[in-house]
Design a binder for these strands. Structure first.
Length: 513
RNA sequence: GGCCCAUUCGUCUAUCGGCUAGGACGUCAGAUUUUCAUUCUGAAAAGAGGAGUUCGAUUCUCCUAUGGGCUACCA
Protein backbone atom coordinates (compact mmCIF):
# COMPACT_ATOMS: atom_id res chain seq x y z
CA UNK A 1 0.00 0.00 0.00
CA UNK A 2 2.62 2.43 1.16
CA UNK A 3 4.92 1.34 -1.64
CA UNK A 4 2.32 1.92 -4.32
CA UNK A 5 1.89 5.43 -3.07
CA UNK A 6 5.61 6.01 -3.03
CA UNK A 7 6.05 4.83 -6.57
CA UNK A 8 3.38 7.15 -7.85
CA UNK A 9 4.79 10.06 -5.89
CA UNK A 10 8.32 9.50 -7.05
CA UNK A 11 7.48 9.03 -10.67
CA UNK A 12 8.97 12.44 -10.98
CA UNK A 13 11.57 13.14 -8.35
CA UNK A 14 10.36 15.73 -5.88
CA UNK A 15 12.33 18.93 -6.09
CA UNK A 16 11.51 21.98 -4.02
CA UNK A 17 13.23 25.28 -3.58
CA UNK A 18 13.65 27.91 -0.94
CA UNK A 19 14.09 31.20 -2.71
CA UNK A 20 14.70 34.12 -0.39
CA UNK A 21 15.58 37.61 -1.37
CA UNK A 22 18.81 38.84 0.21
CA UNK A 23 17.30 42.01 1.62
CA UNK A 24 18.18 41.47 5.25
CA UNK A 25 18.04 38.86 7.95
CA UNK A 26 15.95 35.79 7.37
CA UNK A 27 12.62 36.25 9.10
CA UNK A 28 11.29 33.47 11.32
CA UNK A 29 8.35 33.07 8.94
CA UNK A 30 10.81 32.46 6.14
CA UNK A 31 12.52 29.89 8.31
CA UNK A 32 9.26 28.04 8.67
CA UNK A 33 8.72 28.09 4.92
CA UNK A 34 12.20 26.65 4.44
CA UNK A 35 11.49 24.01 7.08
CA UNK A 36 8.25 22.88 5.44
CA UNK A 37 9.99 22.65 2.11
CA UNK A 38 12.72 20.61 3.69
CA UNK A 39 10.34 18.25 5.48
CA UNK A 40 8.36 17.72 2.30
CA UNK A 41 11.43 17.08 0.19
CA UNK A 42 13.04 14.68 2.62
CA UNK A 43 9.82 12.76 3.15
CA UNK A 44 9.60 12.09 -0.54
CA UNK A 45 13.25 11.36 -0.96
CA UNK A 46 13.51 14.52 -2.99
CA UNK A 47 15.86 17.45 -3.22
CA UNK A 48 15.83 20.98 -1.97
CA UNK A 49 17.47 23.89 -3.69
CA UNK A 50 18.58 27.25 -2.37
CA UNK A 51 18.06 29.96 -4.93
CA UNK A 52 18.84 33.58 -4.22
CA UNK A 53 16.33 35.96 -5.74
CA UNK A 54 18.35 39.13 -6.06
CA UNK A 55 16.63 40.70 -9.02
CA UNK A 56 16.07 43.92 -7.13
CA UNK A 57 19.50 45.48 -7.15
CA UNK A 58 18.17 48.42 -5.11
CA UNK A 59 17.36 46.32 -2.08
CA UNK A 60 20.39 44.08 -1.98
CA UNK A 61 21.95 43.86 1.48
CA UNK A 62 25.49 42.54 1.77
CA UNK A 63 25.85 39.62 4.14
CA UNK A 64 22.23 38.57 3.89
CA UNK A 65 22.97 35.60 1.69
CA UNK A 66 25.58 34.19 4.03
CA UNK A 67 23.26 34.85 6.94
CA UNK A 68 20.51 32.79 5.34
CA UNK A 69 22.80 29.85 4.73
CA UNK A 70 24.26 29.94 8.21
CA UNK A 71 20.84 30.22 9.82
CA UNK A 72 19.42 27.20 8.10
CA UNK A 73 22.54 25.16 8.71
CA UNK A 74 22.24 25.93 12.39
CA UNK A 75 18.71 24.60 12.34
CA UNK A 76 19.72 21.44 10.53
CA UNK A 77 18.10 22.35 7.23
CA UNK A 78 20.49 21.25 4.52
CA UNK A 79 20.20 21.92 0.84
CA UNK A 80 21.08 19.51 -1.91
CA UNK A 81 21.79 22.19 -4.46
CA UNK A 82 22.08 25.91 -4.69
CA UNK A 83 24.08 28.95 -3.69
CA UNK A 84 26.81 27.71 -1.40
CA UNK A 85 26.11 24.10 -2.30
CA UNK A 86 26.65 23.95 -6.05
CA UNK A 87 24.77 21.73 -8.47
CA UNK A 88 24.10 21.10 -12.09
CA UNK A 89 21.58 23.90 -12.52
CA UNK A 90 24.02 26.63 -11.56
CA UNK A 91 24.16 29.53 -11.28
CA UNK A 92 21.60 29.74 -8.49
CA UNK A 93 21.82 33.49 -8.01
CA UNK A 94 19.31 35.20 -10.25
CA UNK A 95 21.54 38.19 -10.88
CA UNK A 96 23.90 35.77 -12.58
CA UNK A 97 21.22 34.40 -14.89
CA UNK A 98 20.48 37.54 -16.91
CA UNK A 99 21.12 35.93 -20.29
CA UNK A 100 18.80 33.06 -19.53
CA UNK A 101 15.85 35.32 -18.75
CA UNK A 102 16.46 37.56 -21.74
CA UNK A 103 15.92 34.62 -24.04
CA UNK A 104 12.44 33.97 -22.65
CA UNK A 105 11.54 37.65 -22.63
CA UNK A 106 12.33 37.73 -26.32
CA UNK A 107 10.26 34.62 -26.89
CA UNK A 108 7.26 36.15 -25.17
CA UNK A 109 7.69 39.33 -27.21
CA UNK A 110 7.97 37.38 -30.43
CA UNK A 111 4.83 35.39 -29.62
CA UNK A 112 2.89 38.57 -28.96
CA UNK A 113 2.27 37.57 -25.36
CA UNK A 114 4.17 40.52 -23.98
CA UNK A 115 4.98 44.02 -25.13
CA UNK A 116 7.43 46.82 -24.60
CA UNK A 117 6.30 49.84 -22.59
CA UNK A 118 8.06 53.20 -22.38
CA UNK A 119 5.96 54.87 -19.71
CA UNK A 120 8.25 56.20 -17.02
CA UNK A 121 7.61 55.60 -13.32
CA UNK A 122 6.79 59.30 -13.04
CA UNK A 123 4.21 59.07 -15.81
CA UNK A 124 2.64 56.08 -14.15
CA UNK A 125 2.53 57.79 -10.78
CA UNK A 126 0.84 60.74 -12.42
CA UNK A 127 -1.67 58.45 -14.01
CA UNK A 128 -2.40 56.77 -10.70
CA UNK A 129 -3.08 60.01 -8.90
CA UNK A 130 -5.14 61.27 -11.81
CA UNK A 131 -7.34 58.19 -12.14
CA UNK A 132 -8.30 56.30 -9.01
CA UNK A 133 -7.74 52.57 -9.27
CA UNK A 134 -5.66 52.99 -12.38
CA UNK A 135 -4.36 49.68 -13.59
CA UNK A 136 -2.11 48.97 -16.55
CA UNK A 137 -4.24 46.37 -18.30
CA UNK A 138 -6.37 45.64 -21.36
CA UNK A 139 -8.63 48.57 -20.58
CA UNK A 140 -5.84 51.13 -20.45
CA UNK A 141 -2.84 49.86 -22.36
CA UNK A 142 -3.98 51.33 -25.68
CA UNK A 143 -3.77 54.81 -24.14
CA UNK A 144 -0.19 54.31 -23.01
CA UNK A 145 3.19 54.61 -24.70
CA UNK A 146 4.05 51.09 -25.69
CA UNK A 147 4.83 48.86 -28.62
CA UNK A 148 1.12 48.19 -29.04
CA UNK A 149 0.28 51.84 -29.63
CA UNK A 150 3.49 53.06 -31.27
CA UNK A 151 4.50 52.20 -34.83
CA UNK A 152 7.09 49.43 -34.96
CA UNK A 153 9.68 51.79 -36.39
CA UNK A 154 9.14 54.23 -33.53
CA UNK A 155 9.57 51.50 -30.94
CA UNK A 156 12.80 50.37 -32.54
CA UNK A 157 14.07 53.91 -32.72
CA UNK A 158 13.35 54.59 -29.06
CA UNK A 159 15.20 51.46 -28.04
CA UNK A 160 18.10 52.27 -30.33
CA UNK A 161 18.30 55.71 -28.76
CA UNK A 162 18.75 54.12 -25.37
CA UNK A 163 15.30 54.94 -24.11
CA UNK A 164 14.61 52.84 -20.99
CA UNK A 165 11.66 50.47 -21.15
CA UNK A 166 9.99 47.56 -19.47
CA UNK A 167 8.40 44.45 -20.86
CA UNK A 168 4.88 43.77 -19.71
CA UNK A 169 2.87 40.61 -19.93
CA UNK A 170 -0.22 40.95 -22.10
CA UNK A 171 -3.17 39.55 -20.23
CA UNK A 172 -6.44 38.95 -22.02
CA UNK A 173 -9.47 39.67 -19.88
CA UNK A 174 -12.54 37.52 -19.34
CA UNK A 175 -11.02 34.23 -18.34
CA UNK A 176 -11.27 32.37 -15.05
CA UNK A 177 -7.85 31.18 -14.04
CA UNK A 178 -7.81 28.30 -11.62
CA UNK A 179 -4.95 27.60 -9.28
CA UNK A 180 -5.01 24.20 -7.70
CA UNK A 181 -3.50 24.64 -4.30
CA UNK A 182 -2.43 21.64 -2.25
CA UNK A 183 -3.53 23.34 0.96
CA UNK A 184 -6.48 25.44 -0.14
CA UNK A 185 -7.97 23.50 -3.00
CA UNK A 186 -9.15 25.36 -6.07
CA UNK A 187 -8.70 29.09 -6.05
CA UNK A 188 -10.03 30.91 -9.05
CA UNK A 189 -9.63 34.46 -10.16
CA UNK A 190 -10.73 36.40 -13.20
CA UNK A 191 -8.01 37.48 -15.60
CA UNK A 192 -9.91 40.75 -15.94
CA UNK A 193 -8.68 41.99 -12.59
CA UNK A 194 -5.06 41.08 -13.29
CA UNK A 195 -2.80 43.84 -14.55
CA UNK A 196 -0.10 43.69 -17.18
CA UNK A 197 2.73 43.06 -14.75
CA UNK A 198 6.23 44.13 -15.56
CA UNK A 199 8.37 41.11 -16.40
CA UNK A 200 11.61 42.77 -17.32
CA UNK A 201 13.39 46.07 -16.84
CA UNK A 202 15.85 47.37 -19.41
CA UNK A 203 17.47 49.62 -16.82
CA UNK A 204 19.24 46.78 -15.03
CA UNK A 205 18.51 44.11 -17.64
CA UNK A 206 16.92 41.98 -14.99
CA UNK A 207 13.53 40.33 -14.87
CA UNK A 208 11.12 40.98 -12.03
CA UNK A 209 10.28 38.27 -9.54
CA UNK A 210 7.41 36.83 -11.51
CA UNK A 211 9.31 35.97 -14.65
CA UNK A 212 12.55 34.92 -12.99
CA UNK A 213 10.63 32.70 -10.66
CA UNK A 214 8.80 30.82 -13.37
CA UNK A 215 11.81 30.45 -15.62
CA UNK A 216 13.99 29.18 -12.80
CA UNK A 217 11.43 26.83 -11.34
CA UNK A 218 10.99 25.35 -14.79
CA UNK A 219 14.67 25.08 -15.63
CA UNK A 220 15.53 23.75 -12.19
CA UNK A 221 12.79 21.15 -12.53
CA UNK A 222 10.92 22.20 -9.44
CA UNK A 223 7.92 19.97 -8.79
CA UNK A 224 6.37 21.70 -5.77
CA UNK A 225 6.28 25.37 -4.93
CA UNK A 226 5.72 25.74 -1.20
CA UNK A 227 5.66 29.39 -0.22
CA UNK A 228 3.90 31.97 1.93
CA UNK A 229 0.31 33.00 1.45
CA UNK A 230 1.37 36.46 0.34
CA UNK A 231 2.01 34.87 -3.05
CA UNK A 232 -1.47 33.49 -3.51
CA UNK A 233 -2.81 36.58 -5.31
CA UNK A 234 -0.06 36.38 -7.91
CA UNK A 235 -0.34 32.64 -8.41
CA UNK A 236 -2.80 33.06 -11.31
CA UNK A 237 -0.28 35.27 -13.05
CA UNK A 238 2.27 32.53 -12.62
CA UNK A 239 -0.11 29.94 -14.03
CA UNK A 240 -0.55 32.19 -17.04
CA UNK A 241 3.18 32.56 -17.47
CA UNK A 242 3.68 28.81 -17.51
CA UNK A 243 1.07 28.66 -20.24
CA UNK A 244 2.59 31.53 -22.24
CA UNK A 245 5.97 29.87 -22.09
CA UNK A 246 4.49 26.55 -23.16
CA UNK A 247 5.26 24.79 -19.88
CA UNK A 248 1.77 24.06 -18.58
CA UNK A 249 2.34 20.33 -18.69
CA UNK A 250 5.26 20.44 -16.30
CA UNK A 251 3.95 23.22 -14.11
CA UNK A 252 4.79 22.58 -10.44
CA UNK A 253 2.12 22.03 -7.83
CA UNK A 254 1.46 24.97 -5.53
CA UNK A 255 1.03 25.08 -1.77
CA UNK A 256 0.49 28.42 -0.07
CA UNK A 257 1.26 28.45 3.62
CA UNK A 258 -0.65 30.55 6.15
CA UNK A 259 1.28 33.48 7.57
CA UNK A 260 2.77 33.98 11.01
CA UNK A 261 0.90 36.78 12.77
CA UNK A 262 1.72 39.18 15.57
CA UNK A 263 1.21 37.72 19.07
CA UNK A 264 -0.96 40.68 19.94
CA UNK A 265 -2.96 43.03 17.77
CA UNK A 266 -3.24 42.73 14.05
CA UNK A 267 -1.04 42.06 11.09
CA UNK A 268 1.75 39.76 10.20
CA UNK A 269 4.73 39.23 12.42
CA UNK A 270 7.47 41.77 11.84
CA UNK A 271 10.91 42.57 13.11
CA UNK A 272 9.46 45.37 15.20
CA UNK A 273 7.26 42.97 17.17
CA UNK A 274 10.33 41.21 18.42
CA UNK A 275 11.89 44.43 19.67
CA UNK A 276 8.61 45.55 21.15
CA UNK A 277 7.65 42.31 22.89
CA UNK A 278 11.14 41.14 23.71
CA UNK A 279 11.71 38.03 21.67
CA UNK A 280 13.79 37.28 18.60
CA UNK A 281 12.26 37.12 15.15
CA UNK A 282 15.52 36.09 13.53
CA UNK A 283 17.30 32.75 13.87
CA UNK A 284 20.71 34.33 14.39
CA UNK A 285 21.76 37.68 15.70
CA UNK A 286 21.78 40.20 12.89
CA UNK A 287 23.58 43.47 12.54
CA UNK A 288 22.10 45.74 9.95
CA UNK A 289 25.05 46.85 7.82
CA UNK A 290 23.44 50.21 7.05
CA UNK A 291 22.12 51.32 10.42
CA UNK A 292 24.34 49.20 12.63
CA UNK A 293 21.25 48.11 14.56
CA UNK A 294 21.54 44.72 16.19
CA UNK A 295 18.59 42.36 16.34
CA UNK A 296 18.67 39.39 18.66
CA UNK A 297 18.62 35.85 17.38
CA UNK A 298 17.25 32.57 18.64
CA UNK A 299 20.68 31.06 18.76
CA UNK A 300 22.17 33.85 20.84
CA UNK A 301 19.14 33.87 23.11
CA UNK A 302 19.92 30.34 24.15
CA UNK A 303 17.49 28.39 22.03
CA UNK A 304 18.35 24.91 20.96
CA UNK A 305 17.91 24.48 17.21
CA UNK A 306 15.80 21.36 17.77
CA UNK A 307 13.38 23.37 19.89
CA UNK A 308 13.05 26.10 17.29
CA UNK A 309 12.41 23.55 14.57
CA UNK A 310 9.82 21.71 16.65
CA UNK A 311 8.10 24.92 17.66
CA UNK A 312 7.94 26.30 14.13
CA UNK A 313 6.80 23.02 12.64
CA UNK A 314 3.74 23.07 14.88
CA UNK A 315 2.82 26.63 13.99
CA UNK A 316 0.52 25.86 11.11
CA UNK A 317 0.80 22.11 11.01
CA UNK A 318 0.22 19.20 13.37
CA UNK A 319 0.48 15.44 13.09
CA UNK A 320 -3.22 14.88 13.83
CA UNK A 321 -2.64 13.46 17.28
CA UNK A 322 -1.53 14.83 20.63
CA UNK A 323 2.16 14.39 20.16
CA UNK A 324 4.01 17.68 20.39
CA UNK A 325 7.63 16.83 20.96
CA UNK A 326 8.87 15.75 17.57
CA UNK A 327 12.39 15.32 16.28
CA UNK A 328 13.39 16.35 12.79
CA UNK A 329 13.23 12.72 11.71
CA UNK A 330 9.75 12.32 13.12
CA UNK A 331 8.67 15.53 11.46
CA UNK A 332 9.99 14.33 8.13
CA UNK A 333 8.11 11.11 8.55
CA UNK A 334 4.81 12.65 9.63
CA UNK A 335 4.64 15.90 7.68
CA UNK A 336 1.95 16.47 5.13
CA UNK A 337 0.73 19.53 3.28
CA UNK A 338 -2.85 18.31 3.63
CA UNK A 339 -2.62 18.74 7.37
CA UNK A 340 -1.35 22.29 7.17
CA UNK A 341 -3.85 24.76 8.50
CA UNK A 342 -5.33 27.40 6.26
CA UNK A 343 -5.47 30.30 8.64
CA UNK A 344 -2.67 32.47 9.95
CA UNK A 345 -1.10 31.57 13.28
CA UNK A 346 -0.38 34.10 15.97
CA UNK A 347 3.14 33.72 17.13
CA UNK A 348 3.02 32.33 20.67
CA UNK A 349 6.38 33.04 22.18
CA UNK A 350 5.50 31.46 25.53
CA UNK A 351 5.03 28.13 23.88
CA UNK A 352 8.40 28.50 22.23
CA UNK A 353 9.98 28.81 25.66
CA UNK A 354 8.25 25.66 26.78
CA UNK A 355 9.66 23.75 23.84
CA UNK A 356 13.13 24.93 24.72
CA UNK A 357 12.64 23.83 28.30
CA UNK A 358 11.60 20.39 27.13
CA UNK A 359 14.60 20.03 24.86
CA UNK A 360 17.01 21.14 27.55
CA UNK A 361 15.66 18.39 29.80
CA UNK A 362 16.09 15.86 27.03
CA UNK A 363 19.71 16.65 26.36
CA UNK A 364 22.34 15.00 28.47
CA UNK A 365 24.36 17.00 30.96
CA UNK A 366 27.56 16.94 28.94
CA UNK A 367 25.87 18.68 26.02
CA UNK A 368 24.23 21.27 28.20
CA UNK A 369 27.47 21.85 30.06
CA UNK A 370 29.30 22.41 26.79
CA UNK A 371 26.75 25.05 25.84
CA UNK A 372 26.98 26.59 29.28
CA UNK A 373 30.77 26.92 29.23
CA UNK A 374 30.87 30.05 27.05
CA UNK A 375 28.28 31.69 29.30
CA UNK A 376 30.45 30.93 32.31
CA UNK A 377 33.42 32.45 30.57
CA UNK A 378 31.57 35.72 30.07
CA UNK A 379 31.21 35.79 33.85
CA UNK A 380 34.89 35.20 34.29
CA UNK A 381 34.51 31.64 35.46
CA UNK A 382 37.16 29.13 34.54
CA UNK A 383 36.49 25.64 35.76
CA UNK A 384 36.54 22.06 34.64
CA UNK A 385 33.90 20.32 32.62
CA UNK A 386 33.31 17.68 35.24
CA UNK A 387 32.22 20.24 37.80
CA UNK A 388 29.99 22.10 35.33
CA UNK A 389 28.27 18.86 34.40
CA UNK A 390 27.45 18.17 38.02
CA UNK A 391 26.09 21.68 38.44
CA UNK A 392 24.01 21.33 35.28
CA UNK A 393 22.57 18.08 36.55
CA UNK A 394 21.26 19.89 39.60
CA UNK A 395 19.79 22.99 37.97
CA UNK A 396 18.87 22.28 34.36
CA UNK A 397 15.27 21.35 35.10
CA UNK A 398 14.72 24.84 36.43
CA UNK A 399 15.52 26.77 33.27
CA UNK A 400 14.08 27.53 29.86
CA UNK A 401 17.32 28.83 28.40
CA UNK A 402 20.96 27.97 28.65
CA UNK A 403 21.85 31.44 29.83
CA UNK A 404 19.35 31.19 32.70
CA UNK A 405 21.59 28.47 34.04
CA UNK A 406 23.87 31.20 35.37
CA UNK A 407 21.16 32.78 37.47
CA UNK A 408 20.38 29.40 38.94
CA UNK A 409 23.90 28.31 39.60
CA UNK A 410 26.16 31.32 40.11
CA UNK A 411 26.63 30.42 43.78
CA UNK A 412 28.29 27.18 42.74
CA UNK A 413 31.09 29.23 41.24
CA UNK A 414 31.19 32.34 43.40
CA UNK A 415 30.59 32.47 47.14
CA UNK A 416 27.87 34.99 47.98
CA UNK A 417 29.21 38.49 48.54
CA UNK A 418 25.86 39.85 49.68
CA UNK A 419 22.80 38.34 51.28
CA UNK A 420 19.33 38.90 49.98
CA UNK A 421 17.68 41.44 52.27
CA UNK A 422 14.23 39.90 52.33
CA UNK A 423 15.58 36.46 52.99
CA UNK A 424 17.75 37.71 55.80
CA UNK A 425 14.77 39.36 57.38
CA UNK A 426 12.71 36.24 57.12
CA UNK A 427 15.24 33.52 57.77
CA UNK A 428 18.01 34.94 59.96
CA UNK A 429 16.74 34.51 63.51
CA UNK A 430 18.05 35.57 66.88
CA UNK A 431 19.72 32.22 67.42
CA UNK A 432 20.89 31.60 63.86
CA UNK A 433 24.49 32.56 64.49
CA UNK A 434 24.64 30.26 67.47
CA UNK A 435 22.98 27.32 65.70
CA UNK A 436 25.12 27.63 62.62
CA UNK A 437 28.26 27.79 64.66
CA UNK A 438 27.21 24.46 66.12
CA UNK A 439 26.42 23.21 62.64
CA UNK A 440 29.93 24.04 61.49
CA UNK A 441 31.30 21.80 64.18
CA UNK A 442 28.97 19.02 63.13
CA UNK A 443 30.00 19.37 59.49
CA UNK A 444 33.63 19.48 60.45
CA UNK A 445 33.38 15.96 61.85
CA UNK A 446 31.81 14.43 58.76
CA UNK A 447 34.21 12.40 56.66
CA UNK A 448 31.89 11.27 53.90
CA UNK A 449 30.48 14.57 52.66
CA UNK A 450 28.10 12.96 50.18
CA UNK A 451 24.64 14.43 50.00
CA UNK A 452 22.99 11.45 51.57
CA UNK A 453 25.39 11.00 54.45
CA UNK A 454 25.58 14.68 55.31
CA UNK A 455 21.81 14.89 55.29
CA UNK A 456 21.46 11.97 57.67
CA UNK A 457 23.97 13.34 60.11
CA UNK A 458 22.75 16.92 60.05
CA UNK A 459 19.13 15.91 60.38
CA UNK A 460 19.76 13.66 63.34
CA UNK A 461 21.79 16.43 64.99
CA UNK A 462 18.81 18.75 64.53
CA UNK A 463 16.45 16.15 65.87
CA UNK A 464 18.59 15.17 68.85
CA UNK A 465 18.82 18.78 69.94
CA UNK A 466 15.14 19.46 69.39
CA UNK A 467 15.85 22.22 66.91
CA UNK A 468 13.41 23.34 64.28
CA UNK A 469 14.34 21.88 60.91
CA UNK A 470 13.13 24.86 58.86
CA UNK A 471 14.94 27.37 61.02
CA UNK A 472 18.27 25.68 60.64
CA UNK A 473 17.97 24.72 57.00
CA UNK A 474 16.76 28.09 55.77
CA UNK A 475 19.51 29.93 57.57
CA UNK A 476 21.99 27.36 56.30
CA UNK A 477 20.80 27.97 52.74
CA UNK A 478 21.08 31.70 53.20
CA UNK A 479 24.72 31.31 54.21
CA UNK A 480 25.65 29.07 51.34
CA UNK A 481 23.52 30.43 48.50
CA UNK A 482 22.98 34.00 49.61
CA UNK A 483 19.25 33.85 49.05
CA UNK A 484 16.24 31.62 49.27
CA UNK A 485 16.56 29.45 46.23
CA UNK A 486 18.41 26.55 44.69
CA UNK A 487 18.37 22.77 44.60
CA UNK A 488 18.38 20.34 47.48
CA UNK A 489 20.65 21.74 50.18
CA UNK A 490 22.84 18.71 50.64
CA UNK A 491 23.34 18.28 46.92
CA UNK A 492 24.78 21.76 47.00
CA UNK A 493 27.10 21.07 49.93
CA UNK A 494 28.31 17.84 48.38
CA UNK A 495 29.35 19.73 45.27
CA UNK A 496 30.91 22.64 47.16
CA UNK A 497 32.74 20.36 49.55
CA UNK A 498 33.23 20.56 53.26
CA UNK A 499 35.76 23.34 53.43
CA UNK A 500 33.91 25.72 51.16
CA UNK A 501 30.62 25.06 52.93
CA UNK A 502 32.09 25.84 56.31
CA UNK A 503 33.89 28.88 54.97
CA UNK A 504 30.59 30.25 53.65
CA UNK A 505 28.85 29.73 56.96
CA UNK A 506 31.66 31.46 58.76
CA UNK A 507 31.55 34.43 56.48
CA UNK A 508 27.77 34.75 56.71
CA UNK A 509 27.87 34.71 60.48
CA UNK A 510 30.42 37.47 60.57
CA UNK A 511 28.48 39.57 58.08
CA UNK A 512 24.99 39.00 59.43
CA UNK A 513 25.45 39.19 63.18
C1' G B 1 -11.76 51.04 -2.75
C1' G B 2 -11.04 46.25 -5.70
C1' C B 3 -9.60 41.05 -5.63
C1' C B 4 -8.20 36.59 -3.03
C1' C B 5 -7.86 33.65 1.49
C1' A B 6 -9.46 32.49 6.27
C1' U B 7 -12.80 32.11 11.03
C1' U B 8 -13.16 25.93 17.37
C1' C B 9 -10.97 27.88 24.67
C1' G B 10 -6.59 34.16 25.69
C1' U B 11 -2.86 31.31 22.12
C1' C B 12 -1.44 26.81 18.84
C1' U B 13 -4.77 23.20 17.44
C1' A B 14 -7.91 17.88 17.15
C1' U B 15 -12.78 16.78 15.10
C1' C B 16 -13.01 14.81 7.90
C1' G B 17 -22.68 14.82 9.70
C1' G B 18 -24.21 11.77 15.26
C1' C B 19 -19.40 14.51 21.49
C1' U B 20 -20.08 15.09 28.10
C1' A B 21 -16.26 19.34 21.54
C1' G B 22 -10.09 16.34 22.96
C1' G B 23 -4.77 17.89 23.74
C1' A B 24 -0.86 21.54 24.57
C1' C B 25 0.98 26.60 26.12
C1' G B 26 -0.56 30.30 29.41
C1' U B 27 -3.75 31.36 33.84
C1' C B 28 -5.76 29.89 38.64
C1' A B 29 -6.14 26.24 42.83
C1' G B 30 -4.28 22.18 45.48
C1' A B 31 -0.29 18.33 46.52
C1' U B 32 5.03 17.39 47.09
C1' U B 33 9.41 20.32 49.17
C1' U B 34 14.03 22.82 54.58
C1' U B 35 13.94 27.58 50.09
C1' C B 36 13.02 28.97 45.09
C1' A B 37 11.89 26.33 41.05
C1' U B 38 10.68 21.67 38.90
C1' U B 39 7.12 17.85 39.05
C1' C B 40 2.14 15.90 39.90
C1' U B 41 -3.26 16.54 40.34
C1' G B 42 -7.39 19.52 39.39
C1' A B 43 -10.23 23.88 37.59
C1' A B 44 -11.91 27.85 34.59
C1' A B 45 -11.81 28.51 29.31
C1' A B 46 -14.17 27.64 22.45
C1' G B 47 -17.41 26.14 17.54
C1' A B 48 -18.28 34.86 14.97
C1' G B 49 -23.70 35.89 13.73
C1' G B 50 -27.90 34.67 10.58
C1' A B 51 -30.36 31.69 7.01
C1' G B 52 -30.60 27.05 4.44
C1' U B 53 -29.57 21.39 3.32
C1' U B 54 -30.45 17.14 6.67
C1' C B 55 -33.72 12.81 11.07
C1' G B 56 -29.36 15.42 12.96
C1' A B 57 -24.82 20.22 11.99
C1' U B 58 -18.57 22.72 14.72
C1' U B 59 -18.41 19.74 10.25
C1' C B 60 -21.93 20.98 3.77
C1' U B 61 -24.10 25.76 1.03
C1' C B 62 -25.22 31.00 1.04
C1' C B 63 -25.23 35.89 3.31
C1' U B 64 -23.22 39.22 6.95
C1' A B 65 -19.38 40.43 10.28
C1' U B 66 -14.45 40.11 11.60
C1' G B 67 -9.29 38.96 10.64
C1' G B 68 -5.36 38.36 7.09
C1' G B 69 -2.95 38.94 2.34
C1' C B 70 -2.32 41.29 -2.37
C1' U B 71 -3.21 45.53 -5.27
C1' A B 72 5.16 48.62 -7.48
C1' C B 73 9.99 49.10 -13.09
C1' C B 74 9.86 44.79 -4.15
C1' A B 75 10.20 40.03 -3.34
Amino acid sequence: MRNTKKIIMTEKKVRVRFAPSPTGALHIGGVRTALYNYLFAKQHGGEMILRIEDTDSQRFVPGAEQYIIESLEWLGIRFDEGVGYGGEHAPYRQSERKDIYKKYVDQLLKDGLAYIAFDTPQELDAKRSEISNFQYDASTRMQMRNSLTLPAAETEKLIANGQQYVVRIKIEPGEEIVVNDLIRGEVSISSSILDDKVLYKSADQLPTYHLANIVDDHLMEITHVIRGEEWLPSAPLHVLLYRYLGWSESMPRFAHLPLLLKPDGNGKLSKRDGDRLGFPVFPLEWKDPKTGDISSGYRESGYLPEAVVNFLALLGWNPGNDQEILSMDELIHLFSLEKCSKSGAKFDYEKGKWFNHKYIQQKDNAEIAALFMPVLETHGIKTDMEYVMRVVALVKERVNFIKELWGQSAFFFNAPVAYDEKTVKKRWKEDSAQRLTELMAVLQDIDDFSSENTETIVKSWIENNGYHLGNIMNAFRLCVVGESKGPHMFDITELLGKEETIRRIQKAISVLS
